[in-house]
């Protein structure tokens, strides 16, 4: 494989996220980077990957250059296997048909909880954010991969509001809250790949992106990070990965 030399932060995000997927998986994808990453995986390595959208799409087929503007538009349905009501496609998560939920994130904490509802005190919010959409359902009911920008204000010790639950307060608190299945599996940023400790459920660095130091990751994170004993450096994007990605989003709607 040829290594690519020039790529944007959004591009490496989509490429590393796509590598987390396995052929045969059923993936519930949000629009933007998650959808790009899932489609990239489908085209490169995982022809048997099934993509679901919360608008009600089972087995989507995304055309290069025609990315849907949301998961509820007609473009999501083209050449899909089936369309369902949106409550019914979400119920597939509850029944257990979905292997991976794949979303972006606005704010995340050390236990992988996501906030997309409020900045500041929810009773008198500084900023009212758009809210959960299907995010809460997906993260409550399956294993999650989150792809997001790495900034200190986005990686906080405790989110202002748990919109989409990760491991809540760590340990067994997710299970004890009534969420026996799923949980945060991976967080992908332009700096590193993160997993979660089996016992404490705290976020830990599994791999650094090419050219990124431990200090750089820690300096951009609002809580103390642990580093995995087998910490390694991720393989850089290949020219092939980059080429397919750019074909998918030629107008750079999601990879600028």
């Amino acid at each position: 494989m040829t290594e690519a030399s020039n790529y944007t932060a959004s591009e490496i995000l989509a490429i590393l996220a796509s590598r987390q997927l396995k052929d045969g998986q059923v993936v519930f994808a949000g629009v933007g980077t998650p959808l790009l990453a899932a489609t990239l995986a489908q085209q490169l390595r995982c022809p048997g990957l099934t993509i679901l959208f919360e608008g009600g799409v089972v087995g989507a087929f995304v055309e290069a250059g025609k990315l849907p503007p949301s998961t509820n538009d007609q473009r999501c349905t083209k050449r899909a296997n089936m369309v369902l009501g949106s409550a019914d496609v979400l119920l597939l998560l509850q029944r257990g048909y979905v292997d991976i939920g794949f979303m972006g994130g606005a704010q995340i904490d050390q236990f992988g909880n996501l906030n997309s509802s409020f900045i500041g005190d929810p009773a008198a919010p500084k900023t009212r954010l758009p809210g959960t959409g299907g995010g809460n359902d997906i993260s409550s009911l399956t294993n999650m991969i989150v792809a997001m920008k790495h900034e200190k204000r986005r990686f906080v010790e405790k989110v202002d509001f748990i919109t989409s639950p990760g491991f809540i307060r760590g340990g067994n608190s997710r299970r004890e809250s009534g969420l026996p299945a799923g949980g945060m599996f991976r967080v992908i940023t332009e700096l590193a790949i993160f997993g979660f400790d089996e016992t404490t459920r705290r976020m830990r660095v599994l791999a650094l992106n090419p050219g990124v130091s431990r200090e750089e990751v820690q300096d951009n994170t609002g809580f103390k990070l642990e580093f995995d004993a087998n910490l390694h450096v991720t393989e850089p994007p290949t020219t092939r990965e980059l080429q397919i990605l750019r074909q998918l989003d030629p107008e750079r709607l999601f990879t600028a």
Binding site: G85, A87, Q94, T132, G133, D137, P165, G178, L179
Partner: peptide, 26 residues
């Protein structure tokens, strides 16, 4: 949650006062 809205309308359409679900907890 998206499913929460869906289950509320479904309960309404079914003529029952509520439906159980497994999301939103915690």
């Amino acid at each position: 949650s998206h499913m929460g809205v869906g289950m509320r309308l479904r309960a309404g359409g079914m003529g029952v006062p509520f439906l159980p679900m497994r999301a939103m907890l915690g």
